[in-house]
Design a protein around this nucleic acid. Structure first.
Lengths: 246, 246
DNA sequence: GGTCCGGATTGATCTGGGTCAAAGCTCTGG
DNA sequence: CCAGAGCTTTGACCCAGATCAATCCGGACC
């Protein structure tokens, strides 16, 4: 069931190093990280951790998408975070996991054994500092999402989700109008519903509505073109441009 | 408009020291904190910081309640955090504030000037460590709240809020049944609505319903008695007891 | 080709919570 | 004592989104 451990590679080569916890490490520190580092793969749908389990590692997503979810006894579930490549998983200094972590697509994780990682962190202020930064980022994202969940309409929720995914995933189509974007939805309608606090039927209807109104174009069920990001941001009820338009 | 700076007092005397950032500091470090520390008061309703403002301090709430809110252009607002005594405000390493912070009741804050605080943090790993812990706590709270906002019914939302306030504020009535609790609501119906993603009318109706069903007793509009916390937790749709029952 | 199966879409209907409106409390100040 | 302001409650009605149910689509596999 557990996927095989992949080959080691120098931490400096890690494909996510630019945003990762080790971004500012010197040679000695990288050496140490390499010693406790390993890669691990998970198939789409596979659980990575269950809420309450003891977590013996921390790490970053290298590729694929994982989600953090909370579930009530009666089955209602709410996704509380989306882990995209370079996002960090794990809570240094905490024993157990606080949420279920599930691989939404096939996922490759870059993991560090927890105990030695914490020891290294103890000795290396800039790693603790970087972790604090990343945690503050997550906190901001969580709180932004609270506004989406608490106050936005279904249509605005969908637009907000598309905007977030575009911000992280999409490539500006070169040469075209500056604010055209193209990407693949990494989530099923049901997963979107769980993220947005909606039902999958409502998600489907609102996506159809956005398509009908030419806010987005769809090719198949997953491939999305946003002809005008500005328009999408308006639909999201978001005044700021999210930092990706000039 | 700005409230007067209160008298200094040794950091060791700080009434919130038990949970505060300086909980583990030695004498030298406390000395340093004292040098950059001051108290500040805000009246109920007064803004403490506006979203986007440059923040030149960090600090903790000593007494009173403040709230973090986000507002859309059309006026819809969502409270994204409740700051109770001992909670930390401010984002070390960040320039601006991310949300509006408003004093919901009269508030006393224990503040540290930001620049020197950050320098001290740079030199003092356990402060950075403590901040990371506190930020992780906030992240957990935010994500727990996402489940409330996304998936719970109005009645469950109210019960969840009452449970949270009880957990932080209430005293177990000594001698009585072990799980009886009494406290004062520190929020108006409107503020509750903003926290819960509801309207104030719905909040009022659901509180009346909980009263009618004997889940709570009300004396005036703010003084609440919970005769059986277990029952309240059930109403909140929360299987766990939140850690305060035997 | 056909059949299965796991999404996704679309329609019909229902309902929880929003909206609009009218009182009702309680405190302050004259 | 009354008047007014601010908060709260309650009622009547409405609508966005949930629920229930019927297809539909596009692979994978025989």
């Amino acid at each position: 069931m557990n996927a095989p451990v992949l080959s080691h590679s120098r931490c400096g080569d890690c494909p996510i190093r630019h945003r990762a916890v080790c971004a500012r490490c010197n040679a000695d520190e990288l050496e140490e990280l390499d010693a406790i580092k390993y890669y691990r793969t998970y198939e789409a749908g596979q659980p990575i951790i269950w809420s309450g389990d003891v977590m013996n590692f921390v790490g970053s997503v290298v590729s694929g998408i994982a989600s953090l979810t909370q579930t009530m006894e009666d089955g209602r579930t709410q996704m509380v975070g989306l882990l995209l490549p370079s996002d960090f998983v794990g809570r240094p200094g905490r024993e157990g996991a606080a949420y279920d972590v599930v691989a939404t697509t096939d996922v490759v994780m870059c993991c560090f054994r927890k105990k030695p990682f914490e020891e290294l962190m103890e000795r290396t202020p800039h790693i603790a500092h970087r972790l604090l930064e990343m945690t503050l980022d997550e906190l901001d994202a969580a709180r932004e999402w609270m506004l989406v969940l608490g106050r936005k309409t279904a249509r605005e929720k969908i637009a907000s989700l598309l905007a977030i995914i575009a911000r992280r995933d999409a490539t500006l189509t070169p040469g075209g109008a500056t604010n055209r974007m193209v990407f693949d939805l990494p989530l099923t309608r049901e997963a979107m519903a769980d993220y947005l606090g909606l039902t999958l039927e409502t998600v489907s209807r609102q996506i159809s509505a956005l398509k009908r109104d030419c806010v987005i174009e769809l090719e198949g069920k997953r491939h999305v073109t946003v002809p005008d990001m500005r328009r999408l941001m308006e639909e999201a009820g978001d005044d700021s441009d999210g930092g990706f338009l000039g």
